[in-house]
Design a protein around this nucleic acid. Structure first.
Lengths: 152, 152
DNA sequence: AATAATTTGCAAATCATTTGCAATTTAGGC
DNA sequence: GCCTAAATTGCAAATGATTTGCAAATTATT
């Protein structure tokens, strides 16, 4: 079993949670995909296993609370999940408004600008985590000439 | 009528959309609140007027498409709406994990780091907009000693 | 292996948001 | 100001994602 999974397994045990087939399955999917996935996509990736969609949701909810996964909501209010910082590299997303593709960027302006420290000093707010999503057009859609957004 | 509303009214007209009671009402609420609001909150603020919740949603959807409002989704997958850049100052949010309060920050690391240009150069992705949300504990919750997150 | 505690599957419930359609309101021209 | 076509609204029902109650199954412990 992958090292990351071992760590998480230990963590769950230490907090009084069981290491179950459903949880292991969900985590396996998350550790083998780099893009943030919707609950339903994770479930679909598990079609061979006999895992109920609600168990996927329950697992994700627990993992989120334990900071094992983070939830990102890009665009139309659908939640997507990916491994949290500490279980993979800190990164942000480039979301193409045309094709919907999601790319990662590892450059983080929040860190380089030491924004956290500045905010703490100025407002007393202690930042623990952040989410940065960048929207626009990916190279190929831009080449294809996609541009105007539609309304109505 | 507020200048911002005048501008938006003109913009709608120029694009072939009507200036209706419902739309004006929704925009009035948005121009008089600084925090991002849920559709239902906007609707509640309008209880005296006879405006249906679906009209609120329809208005918000149109305004979002026209870049008059932007949707932000903090935490539990609920959408919140606020005036978009150009109709108010560019800013980001500090979301307190303990009390849920939302503060604005106007410092923007994406701009100061000229991240957009860097990404364009490195990946070909043309960033048009971005969303940055910072989570943590606000000064008063921190004083009150709130700290651990709950699971299960 | 036996028991208690935790988790799962399933189906029904909930919550936010969207939609069809008839009735109402708005934009423009007269 | 009045009239007509086009756009918008209200309402109720539909949708889609996510959550929940509860009995059955699985996991951790003894």
């Amino acid at each position: 079993m992958h090292q990351t999974l071992q760590n998480i397994r230990y963590l769950l045990g230490a907090q009084g949670y069981s290491w179950t087939g459903a949880r292991a399955a969900v985590l396996t999917v998350l550790t083998t995909h780099r893009n943030p996935l919707r609950a339903e996509e994770i479930h679909r990736a598990l079609q061979n296993r006999q895992i109920n969609l609600s168990s996927v949701y329950r697992g994700l909810r627990l993992f989120e609370a334990l900071n094992i996964v983070r939830r990102v909501t890009l665009g139309r209010g659908v939640s997507r999940y990916e491994l949290a910082d500490g279980y993979r590299d800190h990164h942000h997303h480039l979301v193409c408004d045309a094709c919907g593709r999601i790319e990662d960027v590892t450059t983080c302006p929040v860190e380089t600008a030491s924004l956290t420290r500045q905010i703490r000093r100025q407002t007393g707010f202690a930042v623990r985590s952040h989410v940065l999503e960048l929207f626009g057009f990916c190279r190929s859609c831009r080449r294809a000439g996609v541009g105007r957004t539609e309304a109505r």
